[in-house]
Design a protein around this nucleic acid. Sequence first.
DNA 1: TAATAACATAAAAATTATTTATAAATCATC
DNA 2: GATGATTTATAAATAATTTTTATGTTATTA
Lengths: 305, 305
Amino acid sequence: MSLEDHKLKVFCTVAETKSFSKTSEIVHLTQPAVSLQIQALEEYYETKLFDRTSNTISLSPSGEVLYKYAKYILALYSAAEKEIAKITGHTKGNVTIGASTTIGNHILPTVIFDFKKMHPKVKMNIYIENTRKIMELLNTGAIEFGLVEGEMSKYKVTLEPIIQDELFLIIPQNHPWVKRKVVSLAEITKEPFITREDGSGTRQVTEKYFSSKGLKFKDINLAITIGSTESIKEAVESGMGISIVSKWVIRKEIKYGSLVALSIKEGRLNRNFYLVMNKNAIISHAVTEFLTFLREYPYDDLLNS
Amino acid sequence: MSLEDHKLKVFCTVAETKSFSKTSEIVHLTQPAVSLQIQALEEYYETKLFDRTSNTISLSPSGEVLYKYAKYILALYSAAEKEIAKITGHTKGNVTIGASTTIGNHILPTVIFDFKKMHPKVKMNIYIENTRKIMELLNTGAIEFGLVEGEMSKYKVTLEPIIQDELFLIIPQNHPWVKRKVVSLAEITKEPFITREDGSGTRQVTEKYFSSKGLKFKDINLAITIGSTESIKEAVESGMGISIVSKWVIRKEIKYGSLVALSIKEGRLNRNFYLVMNKNAIISHAVTEFLTFLREYPYDDLLNS
DNA sequence: TAATAACATAAAAATTATTTATAAATCATC
DNA sequence: GATGATTTATAAATAATTTTTATGTTATTA
């Protein structure tokens, strides 16, 4: 049960998604319920708020006016909640996150577990998808913010580096290099190399690194392309080749020794994970608290635990 | 069915009246309903909004915060409605007026009749009370604005002269002065004089006029004091004495000749009727429209009709 | 023209708000 | 301090609203 004006929330979502049915998914109602909410508003103001004549829905002049005020009103509800929560110390509500694979599978579970210890009443919802899908979810309003690998500069969102990452070369425990700490790119090119599919954030950053060192991706001895990092780890473990993956996905394997991580002589392979949000987003108190928690989280401890 | 957030409206009214039961009257709910609304808010924010320990209710710190935002939010609902109504041309809603006797009985009926012709969907509610009672109703929020005779400067309200009034001496149709246009104060003191009770706006302004002309009220030949202007007219008509009343209350009697109105030689007896409103009031579109109508109304036509 | 996708409508079900009736608490007064 | 008056709280019943399920309509696409 939320306090904010439900009708206005539904109205804004329709205005933003330009779709009654998409809205119904986002606000967790059925499509007829959305229709009725909008109809109730239209009846109250005695004016159509949307033009539904053509295929795409658009705001009427009155709708534009209402949208302007509705956003403002909803922002005030949120601000009131935030200010009261600051006084009482109670945090509750929903946090709906979209995270790309690595973050969603390897970082968020522990972070959320720790956050819930502090704020047990906050309900967390996590979508794990690839970066492009996350950006779409953000665009429609299905998630409140995203945690992604790449810098998706083409979307009109705010972008904030939030977690540091480093990629390492991984080899199986019976590989001749296991006693070494560092290998050169020249050596790597001779080994069978396993990589993620084109479009993967990990692959993108790896290619970029190679080319910055004067190496083309086709110079690599490409053994296999696999669509999942988990499978890559298994493939490397079973001796099918070597690969380059995020330090976050191999924590367990390094600990138990089934994989060995090596640095590359030519330099570190760093990248950031990013927090992405819609520029005009209304941020609830629960989300604000979670973002603060995310920004201050001791990721190094998590990595070494 | 209003759109604005009902819970916030109730909450604000409680905050302003400092009473659940008074609020229940103003918002047209029963007292338990008000209790439940406030409880729902308190449950949602997980904090008390009012201290009810002592006899007088007061806002808690969280309550203060919510009140600040609630007023803001309600003002925005109202502004949205106003802006949309400007586009669509539909005016509706409620207008709750408090008017003092003369205005309520002799001016408002026709004005409201004319207003309803333009805006048939607006519901008008009129309380007719003496000026002091009107100010109290305004203070508790029971009415949205008042139309009163006196200048109630001790209340923290906005004051705007809105209708001009003039008081005249009235005599019965068989009185020796019927052919005259003007009589002097000296002559008046010799006739039996009928007056309203102490506290009446008409009596106040008459006393003030007399004393400004160097005449004390006790110099007058006071025949009777009557609590209603209607009764005064009847008393004058039946020859019990003369009186001084507003031009607004004797329109019919002048027209049919049962009373004759004379000027006073020493000078006109003018006064204003005032529009009074709470300084922090949130004004709905319907009220805005009605006030504009009031300000632009051709009162002289009404008077001579 | 049939199939699909999106929104609208109607009746039933679920949820929420409100009232009636009553209890508990707080003051003021004797 | 008891007593009565006033104010707020609670509980069960009722009323009103919201939401869903089921179905219909319309526009678009293949």
